[in-house]
Structures are given as structure tokens and as C-alpha cells.
Amino acid sequence: MIKILIVDDDIGICKILQDFFEFKGYETCIASKGKEALDLAKKEKPHLVFLDIGLPDISGMEVLREIKKSDPTVKVIMITAYDEEERIKEAEKNGASDYVVKPFSLEYLNEITLRKVYKQLFEDLRTEHQELTNTYGQIVFTLARTLEEKDPYTKGHSERVSQYSLDIANELGLSENEKTIVSHAALLHNIGNMSLDDDILNKKHEFTNEEKEVVKKHCIVGYEILQILDNFQEHALIIRHHHERIDGNGYPDNKKGEEIPFLSRILTIADAYDAMTSKRPYREKISSPIEAVNELIKNKGIQFEPELVNAFINVLAKKQIIIKENIQ
């Protein structure tokens, strides 16, 4: 609820404004002196202040300066008995959002002045939300990097998967936006691993069945971390489904074929290839590049999208990582 502080040396005006705004559903408090207003502003933390310029103890202009110094986000509407251009300019310079000249109608306050203040409040909230979103996004990427720094066996894994995913997207001629999304999602695809105990994350032996079920939850945890961010909605879905299989036997939702987001299907191939060609705590790398490619081909239409496997093979051949003639 929006809270309003009303400050005027005429207590009658204070009461009229208080009754009017409380009828409209606002929470209000009133003061007839400057010091009292500053104390209330500090205690009640109002969103909006109606402030008379002429007060008996401290000038309204001084009260305005102190309120804005204490909390720059508070909106202040100055009340004056005269349409004095210089004083109005001074008030605006000190942070006043608007002014009204006595006498004024209550409906004018409601329809004109408050509408302007609402717009300012909305812009503040939108800016604050964007700053929080940007900060949260930066934190997420930092956490992903920190997670890999903790685990020497997977260090560099997300960067490689991101590059492979981007290479596939380029090979397919996807849009710049799709390329950015899939490369960023790949960087964050294991962010859900932060929920895993170090004992599991760095285990030097095969996982037990129970531990495998715990590890599988990293897709959902990653999704939950990212889906609260407006700018990461698509990334969240890609990460949730990057362990699904074309035949529907993947996890966490047993989606199959085109039910799986297209960019998730790209990430699945990039992730699987790097997993096969990289060392793990419990094993050496199990495949050379050509052996990993043969495994991808073997699982076309079962685990992997055939068209995307073909695109990735073209990528590896162009980079001279494999020679197509050696594919079985």
C-alpha cells in the first residue's frame, strides 16, 4: 500500500487531505511542523509527501532537502499559497516531483498530480527491477564459473560445450539471438550442480543408483535458479531439458522428439560429445573424437536428433578434429 505523509501548518487542510486519501485506500500520517514531519518521514518511510512550503519552525524547502537527502526515492509534492516561479524552480532543483497552488481541488490532486507521481514511482521500480535482474544474472554466471573452479575435472567443460553449441548453431544458420541464447545456456547448463554435495560432485568412483537420481535433479535446480529472471526464461527451459532423449527415455520430463526445445537438442549433443572426450573424477576419457562421433551416430534417432548430429559432424570436420572418411 502507498503511504502518504501530509505536512501543512493548517491542521484543517491536513485532516481534509487525510480523509480524502484514506477514502481512496492510501495509508496516511500528518504533521503541522517541519521537525515533526522529518521525524515521521524517518519513522514511517512514506512513498509520497505533500509538503507545505511555509511551516512555522523549519521552512518547507529545508524539510524537502532533508527528506530527499535521507531517501532520494521519496516523491514530494510542494504545496504553496502563491504561484512563485523562483520558489517552484528551487523546489524542483531540490528534488520536488510537482507542486500545487492553494486553493486546489481534491480531484485535481487525484487525477493530475498523483498520476504524474505514479509514473515516477513505476519508473523507479522498473529501473530497480532491471538493476536487480542484471545483478542476479551476473551472480549466476559468476557462480557457474566458481563451480567449475572448484572441480578441476570439469574445469573448462561449460566453455567447450558453449563453443560446440555455438558452432552447431552457426552451421545451421540460426539467428544471432538463438546463437546467443544457446551459447549462454550452455555456459550455465550445469549451474544446478551447486546443489550437489562435494562428496558426490568429486566422487572418484561410479555413482550408485541413488546418487544418480540425486545428480539428475541438477536440471530442475538449474531451471529454478534461472526461470525467475525475465531475461533467462528461454535459457531455463533449455537447461531443464538438456538431458531429454529423442526416444522419450531421458529426464526430467521424459519428453521426446519435437517436444524437446530445439536448442536443448543442440546442447544435448555438445554436452554428450564433451563428456565422452573429457576426463572425469571416476574415469579417464572414454573416447577419441572419432569414437565419440561414432557413438553419436549410433544413437541418432534414439538419444540425439539426426539432423543435428550431422551438423556437428560437419563442424568437427571443418575444424579438422575428425576426418569424415574415418567414420564407421
Rank of each mutant, 00 (worst) to 15 (best):
K42C: 09
F262L: 13
I4M: 11
M78N: 08
L17G: 06
A270E: 05
L229I: 06
E92H: 06
P46W: 01
C29R: 07
F141C: 09
L51V: 01
K285G: 08
V49S: 05
F20K: 14
A185D: 00
H243D: 12
L187C: 06
F21W: 08
I112W: 02
L166R: 01
F304C: 05
A144Q: 12
Q233S: 11
I139Q: 02
G34W: 01
M276V: 02
G173C: 10
D39N: 07
N299I: 00
K319E: 10
M78I: 02
V100H: 05
I191V: 02
T135W: 03
E159Q: 12
H242M: 10
E176I: 09
T127S: 15
T28W: 00
N231Q: 15
N310E: 13
E307L: 11
T268I: 03
D253M: 14
E62K: 15
D52N: 14
E36N: 10
S195F: 04
G301D: 04
V214Y: 10
D199P: 06
P103V: 03
C219M: 11
K318Q: 08
E284D: 11
N299C: 00
E178R: 10
K102Q: 14
E171P: 00
D19Q: 15
G192E: 02
I77M: 08
D151T: 06
G137N: 14
I228F: 05
S70Y: 04
L316W: 13
K216S: 12
V100M: 04
V117P: 14
G60R: 11
A317G: 12
I313W: 00
N249S: 15
E123H: 13
S287H: 08
G137K: 07
N170D: 07
I225T: 09
G137S: 13
I6F: 13
H218V: 04
K300P: 05
I139E: 03
D71A: 15
E62Y: 13
G12V: 11
F104A: 09
N249V: 09
K212R: 15
I239T: 03
E44M: 07
K69E: 05
E295R: 12
T146M: 06
N294Q: 08
Q320G: 01
F122T: 10
K119G: 13
L125N: 15
E92Y: 11
I77C: 11
R240D: 02
G250K: 14
E90G: 07
D39E: 14
R126H: 13
Y153R: 04
L109T: 09
N310G: 05
E149S: 14
G257E: 13
E307G: 08
L64G: 02
S158G: 02
D199C: 05
K255C: 01
I323T: 09
D124H: 14
K217P: 03
E66R: 03
E62G: 11
I246T: 11
I290P: 09
A272T: 14
E111K: 15
N326K: 10
K24D: 04
V74C: 00
K298Q: 03
D271P: 01
I266V: 06
K256C: 15
P261M: 05
I322Q: 00
E213P: 08
G173D: 08
K203C: 06
I77N: 02
T277E: 12
G250F: 00
L308S: 07
G156W: 15
A31Y: 02
K119F: 14
K217Q: 13
H235W: 00
N134M: 15
P152F: 07
V182Q: 01
L40C: 09
I79M: 01
K212Y: 02
R245L: 04
T208M: 12
A270R: 01
A270D: 00
